[in-house]
Design a protein around this nucleic acid. Structure first.
Lengths: 341, 341
DNA sequence: TTGTACGCGTTATCAA
DNA sequence: TTGATAACGCGTACAA
């Protein structure tokens, strides 16, 4: 039953005013009379006038839209980041366009084009697993749209980035392991192209060294996050001549699969192996025998801060190149005390 | 380092052609010469020309954007629906604007305005818990934008809707309980304003009746999904003179909290009480002693079908009022066989 | 096969 | 305090 949508023109002609007057009145422009404003607003309401953002965007040459590119919304961690980003964006009058790469480089490239085509005013991006070359991203930036990396940043790019301080987190995790008497500590990591993997690794290695434990390459495995890959990494660790008694994992998902693997394939050892992951997944509370601990990150805040930094770049385009690097702390959250036993 | 963005005009003047020729050439319009097309496309590529969707939208009086309004992205179930919807939308050349009501009516109203302001071509919506009056939604529809309810539909509205066949699901659950010897079966439901609650309830009641079990009002509790509320509902059931031996829950989240409640507060009975929820949350696989079962729904497909139905409404505006009701089956997924014991 | 003219809804600028 | 005009980038009907 669509009554035709009212426009500024409709209001103007009805009130025998000019469109520009109406436009100003609606936006409370100072040099419009109070009486006129009142008349305009009354009629606007009556006609259910809703400003046409489409036209405004076009006119203003700004989309008032910010883009966010994540691997997947099925990952609770990124959803939290989207939430933080979205909240910030909405509070500042921006819409958000979400894209999911599903870890595909091809999809990432397409989405970047979509973003460009939609003239997003800025973009934050957590690169896909396949993104080892960043030509497409650099081209995007060269087209004039500022970006901020978040969570994952290519290891060979110096650019604005907001992420967790996973290095310090790993240091903490190792210290906790050691305090419980562990000396043989394994590590399941992810793509070595991300700084967030490298930093975890450095923290792991430096943590060991700090406690006088020699670094042993065979204790480090890599996974691509599929259940299969997680299981595989765990198996290789357990099949060492001297398997680890403690394992740090890139993220909770990996840790949970590692735990499943232990329970299914190495049940006799399952309870003696200490596990720490990243993320503090809320579902862990439902486990009767939870893993040892998890490094709680702050994805929501990372989303917010990314938005803040991005909007700054949007509003104050810099020609000088001084990459901002923001790191938010992780906090070790211990679950074992929650055990009923 | 933004080289100014190239427009159709730039290409035209560079090639001494008219903008309209360029426009047509870029879109492979039949009556443009092959040679011209080639020249145009070459230069377009060279100048990194990306069509300005903002202008196209404005010109076409269509946003090529579909809206989706959900309670929260923290709920895995709705994320899956978003995925399905998004996939469908992208495949059909549409963007997606996501809004989260966080179960707030106020927020829902604001988001509806945002959607209207952005001139989305259509919208699918799962109403908030607070939405007992639908004036704002009806007004939205009256403004000319078609909508499709999904998952949750107001009980007093006859309108297009895509959701799970939760009635049949409840019937199946009850039948399964009965087959295991249960006769005293409880139910934790949600807002009675949604058809999806009513249908669960009817399935629960009819299921009981089918097996000759009298309906007992005291066995039905309501929860608002907060952990506190879930625990409270569970406690009330357990504190009955004759507590249930089996409980159907509105969704897995409720069931998991119910399970926690049992283990913490009624440990002696915890293992003898059979639980079934809705959703088949993938995290359940990590539980050592999982609940009995869950009704696996098809949120991804619901998202897709909602998109399909919506796009049909967008492209073929109907004046005649014939609400479509699409129901997708639930499938009982049994977890107990996964138990290690 | 190509070009011209116009308009979509809004706002900025300048004139009245 | 208000109004007229132009412009944003594109697509389309129609003219050449």
């Amino acid at each position: 039953m669509g009554h035709k949508r009212a426009t500024i023109k409709d209001i103007a002609s009805e009130l025998k005013l000019s469109p520009s007057t109406v436009s100003k009145a609606l936006r409370d422009h100072p040099n419009i009379g109070v009486v006129t404003k009142e008349r305009v607003k009354r009629l606007a309401k009556q006609l259910h006038f809703v400003p046409n953002q489409t036209a405004i965007r076009f006119k203003q040459q700004r989309s008032f839209t910010l883009g966010i590119l994540i691997p997947s919304m099925l990952d609770h961690f990124y959803v939290a980041a989207v939430e933080g980003f979205e909240k910030f964006a909405y509070d500042n009058g921006y819409n958000v366009l979400i894209g999911q790469s599903h870890e595909s480089l091809q999809r990432e490239k397409e989405l970047l084009l979509t973003m460009q085509s939609n003239r997003v005013d800025g973009l934050i991006i957590a690169i896909s697993r396949e993104t080892v070359d960043t030509t497409h991203i650099n081209e995007f930036v060269r087209s004039g749209i500022p970006i901020v990396y978040f969570m994952r940043k290519p290891i060979n790019e110096e650019y604005h980035c907001v992420c967790s301080d996973v290095y310090a987190g790993a240091i903490d995790a190792i210290a906790y392991f050691v305090s419980l008497g562990h000396k043989r500590i394994g590590f399941i990591n992810a793509s070595s192209f991300w700084t967030t993997s490298r930093d975890r690794f450095l923290g792991y290695r430096d943590g060991l060294i700090q406690h006088g434990i020699p670094f042993d390459k065979s204790l480090v495995q890599e996974s691509d996050f599929t259940q299969e890959s997680n299981f595989h990494a765990m198996r290789r660790l357990m099949q060492l001549n001297t398997p680890p008694t403690a394992i740090l994992s890139f993220k909770d998902q990996v840790m949970l699969d590692a735990l499943s693997c232990l329970r299914r394939e190495f049940p006799s050892k399952a309870d003696s192996i200490a596990l720490i992951g990243y993320g503090a997944n809320p579902m862990i509370q439902y486990l009767e025998r939870p893993p040892l601990a998890s490094l709680k990150e702050q994805p929501y805040e990372i989303g917010q801060k990314s938005g803040l930094l991005l909007l700054d770049l949007v509003n104050h385009p810099r020609t000088d190149y001084e990459p901002q690097l923001v790191k938010l702390p992780c906090k070790l959250q211990v679950f074992s005390t929650l055990k009923q036993r």
